[in-house]
Structures are given as structure tokens and as C-alpha cells.
Design a protein around this nucleic acid. Structure first.
Length: 277
DNA sequence: CAAGTGCTATTAACAGAGGT
DNA sequence: ACCTCTGTTAATAGCACTTG
């Protein structure tokens, strides 16, 4: 296998949204920074390019969300993301990093095809903060613990800038925190059915970009990280199912018409309930 | 050889934390 | 508010070993 060059490119990304539900709530601010790093120490050498933009959502920004990030309807009025510009920054990156990356990726998948195609790493999970003596993994708390002064907390541009500064701190052994992220396996790809399901919740959502096949299971990877892993079956669910099946058969034999009517009734109720959601 | 015991690995269920 | 992941704890399975 060809050896990787001593320096690499990665992008840190952060978004602010109207809520927590990907596919339902919308992104209103996006900030991304492409940076160069040293592969042996994780040192971040320079920001190569960056972008920050707002986008007006289809409805009003909930007060709860504004309370968190301070972004108002006036801030985003008439604004749209520059997709071409964002793509030009993301494109050269080997992988994307975000704090709680599954959250950001979950939103981005709907509006940006590259989000499901790129490798994602997480600055919250892919650095063992607990082992380094940090009780909490919250970005603002980590910044505070490292003496990094933040002017605008919970704003995408500010979070990106200071998160990069945090990851570039000495981990105590001559390397930077970012090295742990570089060496960590990327997040598993989102399951196709998962993406389609979430997408169905937002009528305006574009279909998600084409996904590569899911990773194949491998014996040398831990089961909890294997996307196709199936937990071992237990006898109890089978026993319960067996008892219920036996009861159903007994009812069908003893009171066939009543039982069939009951089953039809249950199916109709279940269909009605599922349509309401 | 069968049954009992103890250790280890795996699994399920739950609580808590993190993102806006 | 919602979703996902992680850590903890308890339950379970599988294996090796001991005992009668």
C-alpha cells in the first residue's frame, strides 16, 4: 500500500439549526474550515480556507433555538448558503470533523450530497477526554478547561475556530489531541434506509445522495461497531412468541369466527394509528 | 461421565450526556 | 423538545476445571 504523505487536509464543520430533529428542523448557519495537519503529531499547521454563511429557514426560528445560539429571523432573512463555495472547501479534505459529528452529519445529509460520501470523524467521541481527566465532553466546557476564551459561544464560526484551537493543544505526550482523531476509524456510514426514513419526515428534503454499500462485517472488529452485527438471540423472546402463537392457535380452533374478526379489527386499528404519525 | 462451580465474554437494559 | 452513543450493571452463555 502507498504510504500517505506526511501532511494531510481535513475540514472542521459546525452548524446551527432550528432544532434537534434532522430531516425536520433546518440548518440556519454553517461554518467550515479546511486545514493542513501533520500526520505524525496531529499538529494543525494552518487554516487553508474557510466559509461561514446563513440560510433563511422555511419557517420562523423557534425561541428555544435562538436562546441557545442567538441567531434571529432578522440575521438570516433573505440569505442562502453558497453551495459551490462550501463544496470547494470540503472537496480536498480527506475527512470531515465535527463535535458530535453524527448530529451535524444527520442534518447535512439532506442538503449536501457530499455529507454522506465523505468520511466523518468526531472530536467529541474520537478523543478520549475522560482518560485525560476531563469530566465532560461538551465543547464549551472543554474550551473553558483549556483556558480558551470564546467570544460567541454556540455560533458556528466561533465554534469551528476555537474547536480547531482546542484540537491543536498538546495532549501531554508531545502530540496534539487531533492526532487521536487522525488515527481513529471514521464513523460508520449512515444506513441507507435510515437516511430515507429521516428524509421522509421533511417534505421539502431532496433525496439523499447515492450511498456506497454498507461495510461488510469483519471478524477483527468489535461487534458494537459492526453495522451489520446482529445480537445473539435470547430464548425469552422466542418463548413469549411461542406462548402467544400457541394461544392464537388455541383461539382459532375454539372460536374461529371471533378470533378472525378480532385479528381484522386489530389490523385496522394499527393501520389507522400508523397513518396518524 | 455427569453435575456443580467459577471465571470470562457477551448481551440487554438503563441512565446520562451531547448536539441545536 | 429528539436521537444517538457511551458507560454501567445485571443477566446469560460458554468453557474449563473439580468433585463424586
Amino acid at each position: 500500500m502507498a504510504k500517505k504523505p506526511p501532511e494531510g487536509l481535513a475540514a472542521f464543520i459546525d452548524i446551527e439549526t432550528t432544532g434537534l430533529r434532522a430531516g425536520v428542523d433546518e440548518i440556519i448557519q454553517l461554518s467550515v474550515a479546511l486545514f493542513r495537519f501533520k500526520r505524525d503529531t496531529g499538529e494543525i499547521l494552518e487554516i487553508v480556507d474557510s466559509y461561514t454563511g446563513f440560510q433563511e429557514p422555511s419557517g420562523d426560528i423557534p425561541r428555544e433555538a435562538t436562546r441557545i445560539h442567538g441567531i434571529t429571523n432578522e440575521d438570516v432573512a433573505g440569505q442562502r448558503f453558497d453551495h459551490a463555495r462550501i463544496h470547494s472547501i470540503i472537496e480536498p479534505a480527506e475527512f470531515l470533523v465535527a463535535h458530535n459529528a453524527t448530529f451535524d452529519r444527520g442534518f447535512l445529509i439532506y442538503d449536501f450530497p457530499w455529507a454522506s460520501e465523505k468520511k466523518w470523524k468526531c472530536s467529541m467521541r474520537h478523543v478520549n477526554w475522560a482518560a485525560k481527566g476531563f469530566k465532560t465532553k461538551a465543547l464549551q466546557k472543554l474550551l473553558e478547561a483549556h483556558g480558551i476564551k470564546v467570544d460567541k459561544a454556540h455560533r458556528a464560526d466561533s465554534d469551528v475556530k476555537y474547536a480547531i484551537e482546542l484540537l491543536n493543544q498538546d495532549a501531554g505526550d508531545g502530540t496534539r489531541y487531533f492526532l487521536e482523531i487522525v488515527n481513529h476509524r471514521a464513523l460508520p456510514r449512515p444506513r441507507e434506509q435510515e437516511v430515507l426514513f429521516i428524509g421522509s419526515k421533511r417534505a421539502s428534503a431532496e433525496p439523499a445522495a447515492s450511498l456506497e454499500p454498507l461495510e461488510q462485517p469483519s471478524a477483527d472488529r468489535p461487534p458494537d461497531t459492526n453495522p451489520l452485527y446482529q445480537p445473539r438471540r435470547k430464548w425469552l423472546p422466542y418463548a413469549i412468541f411461542g406462548v402467544l402463537a400457541a394461544a392464537l392457535i388455541a383461539c382459532l380452533v375454539s372460536f374461529p369466527y371471533t378470533t378472525v374478526l378480532l385479528i381484522v379489527f386489530v389490523i385496522l386499528i394499527a393501520r389507522k394509528a400508523s397513518k396518524k404519525r
